[in-house]
Nucleic acid binder design. Structure first.
Lengths: 171, 171
DNA sequence: TATTTAGAATAATGTACATTATTCAAAAAA
DNA sequence: TTTTTTGAATAATGTACATTATTCTAAATA
């Protein structure tokens, strides 16, 4: 028979689920379900960034010295729809830390101001150069003495594709 | 009255939805709903990677010259749970393309073999050096003549934190 | 005949609900 | 009294279903 009566405080406690917080069902295209699951499982690729002055206990980096949690995509790509990557070739920009084979992150929505490193198409060939505005005009300069600066004028077949924001170098 | 009868072929056509493919409701923790939505809206941060030899029509990069679609996180981080970032300080590794202020991607799950660039804690201070095994023993070498190699032995207070896989350099 | 209209058909979408999991405590049993 | 049992309470979770959107065509109309 009944063992009834109120059970104040009973019930499954909050925050016991997979994510320790309430969830909502969101429709996900089938082809991306596994990607989204992965994304969720590692909390959106947010990984710890340590300052180089860490003096933590070993062997595991201690949480106390985490500078911030970083998601590479969010950190490096401010305008996803206007951003693309280019693989660098040649050594004309080693002075700017750009080596052959590096992946350059290029933002088309940024204004190509003087001093910025840009991706330019010169006669249909992609190159990475530093934009330089002087009293003599607008130039594309290599960061390497062996290369000559290229003057930009109305006659020249030069199109700026975008501004380089970061360089990814595999070691 | 009835205008009945079968309507073969009637109905909303497939692939008319937001994603042009079938969807399934997946539960998402509330704090990540906006992140996931963003992730979906740009198809998982997969952006085009162009080869440097592109000779496309202007001013927009043509799809024909896309080398591949790249997601930085997936491309650079193979072991999310074992990976962290460290901000580099000092110029001891400029020869390897590592400059002060760069963000290093470090994988703790990789074996620190000779020749690899590693993050090591020496007397509690983090440094980035190249691991070098010679007949004389194991060394941590800077890629810069002004720094001296550090010999690793049982007595030395050196712990390898992980192997550097990539360098991110802001320009 | 040509045009319009009112369902019929079917995909997309968000959410209510049934189910499952978990914890609590009153009542029963020891 | 102490221990065990059993239903109450409530969160987590996946999915069925009601709703909405869209297109098609037979019948009605001009």
């Amino acid at each position: 028979m009944g063992r009834g009566g109120i059970r104040r405080g009973a019930g499954r406690p909050k925050g016991q689920g997979k994510y320790n917080e309430p969830t909502k069902p969101i429709r996900i295209p089938e082809s991306m379900i596994s990607d989204v699951m992965k994304y969720l499982s590692i909390k959106g690729y947010k990984l710890p960034l340590y300052a180089s002055t860490v003096q933590a206990g070993f062997p595991s980096p201690a949480d106390d010295y985490i500078e911030q949690q970083l998601d590479l995509n969010q950190h490096l790509i401010k305008h996803p729809t206007a951003t693309f990557f280019v693989r660098a070739a040649g050594n004309s920009m080693v002075g700017a830390g750009i080596h052959s084979g590096d992946i350059l992150i290029v933002d088309r929505s940024l204004n190509p101001k003087s001093g910025k490193i840009v991706i330019a198409a010169i006669d249909g060939q992609l190159t990475v150069k530093r934009l330089s505005k002087t009293s003599k005009g607008l130039y594309l300069k290599a960061e390497n003495d062996q290369y000559q600066a290229i003057k930009i004028n109305d006659a020249s077949d030069v199109v700026i594709w975008g501004v380089v924001t970061s360089v990814i170098h595999k070691v």
